[in-house]
């Protein structure tokens, strides 16, 4: 019996790993293809796509595509712009949306269920449908910045940040998570004399690690991949983000090698952010240690 069950166990394990390896291949090979192609001249790159050589650093391998990409577009500026816009939006979004969710879940006030329904209803509205009205509004809004009061938000960082700070999906994620926190923790804090801001800062947010990581990853990806909105509101190169910068490589003759080099470079911040948060995510679950 013991041998049979051991064999079964081994077989199950092997199957499981086989499936995991397959899934990993599906996800990793496009990245490998991108990296390898970024090192090859266009002609070889296109020839290699017919064989497994596409995934190997073979043939005429060099960093020429990278230098060419830098010549063609201000890559560093675009990455800086995207990281800045994305970073600021993610931080502000986590703050604002978690506060909104906190008010929805823990504080009783008239009309909160209705308002939450309205906010959740915005989830089904595609951005494309509100893009034009949003553009019209943004083009007329006042802003107080370094140059004093100005009108119209176009060609700026804040036009890429402010409209995306509060969003239904992030609020929804926080609401769902907060609803699952034991209500007695909040009540205990209230009886101990804590005010709502203190409960938010000292009780709820320290326990919100997993949802913070999830919301941050989703928001980061959405912001970093922004294309339509910055294309509409930013005409000056100085504020342009990475995805719009991709246009520089799709002119008369597409330079695939340079495209791959550019993509490899702009993928680095995403992978770094993801890997960083993945560790924070696991750590936050391990430290919570909530046990019945």
């Amino acid at each position: 019996m013991a041998t049979i069950s051991a064999d079964n166990h081994g077989l199950r394990l092997a199957t499981r790993y086989a499936v995991l390896v397959l899934i990993a291949i599906v996800f990793i090979f496009p990245l490998v293809f991108m990296l390898m192609s970024s090192l090859k001249p266009d002609q070889q790159l296109l020839q290699d796509t017919a064989s497994l050589r596409a995934f190997l650093p073979v043939g005429d391998v060099s960093l020429r595509n990278y230098t060419a990409a830098f010549d063609r577009a201000p890559v560093a500026l675009f990455i800086f712009n995207s990281v800045l816009v994305t970073g600021v939006t993610v931080v502000l979004s986590l703050l604002v949306c978690s506060m909104a969710a906190f008010a929805f879940v823990f504080i009783g006030w008239k009309g909160r269920d209705f308002l939450l329904t309205v906010i959740l209803a915005t989830l089904i509205v595609p951005f494309e449908t509100i893009a034009i009205p949003l553009l019209l509004i943004a083009s007329k809004l006042p802003w107080i910045g370094m140059d004093g009061l100005t009108w119209g938000w176009l060609n700026s960082y804040h036009v890429q940040i402010v409209p995306f700070i509060a969003d239904g999906l992030t609020i929804f994620l926080f609401v769902q998570y907060f609803k699952d926190l034991p209500g007695e923790l909040i009540e205990a804090a209230r009886v101990e004399g804590a005010t709502w801001p203190q409960i938010y800062r000292r009780i709820v947010m320290p326990l919100a690690g997993p949802v913070l990581a999830t919301a941050a990853i989703l928001k980061f990806l959405a912001m970093y991949n922004q294309y339509l909105w910055p294309l509409m509101v930013v005409q000056q190169e100085g504020y342009r983000p990475v995805m719009v910068g991709l246009q520089y490589f799709f002119q008369q003759n597409v330079a695939w090698g340079e495209v791959m080099a550019y993509l490899s470079m702009i993928t680095v911040p995403v992978l770094a952010f993801y890997l960083y948060l993945q560790r924070a995510f696991i750590a936050s679950i391990a430290s919570t240690g909530v046990k019945g």
């Binding site: 034991p182 007695e184 923790l185 009540e187 009886v191």
Partner: peptide, 20 residues
């Protein structure tokens, strides 16, 4: 009056001690 101004302390069934 809110709980904090009533001069009471409470022990809950689930203990409600802060896990972090």
């Amino acid at each position: 009056l809110p709980p904090k101004d009533r001069g009471v302390a409470m022990v809950f069934q689930s203990y409600a001690i802060f896990p972090h």
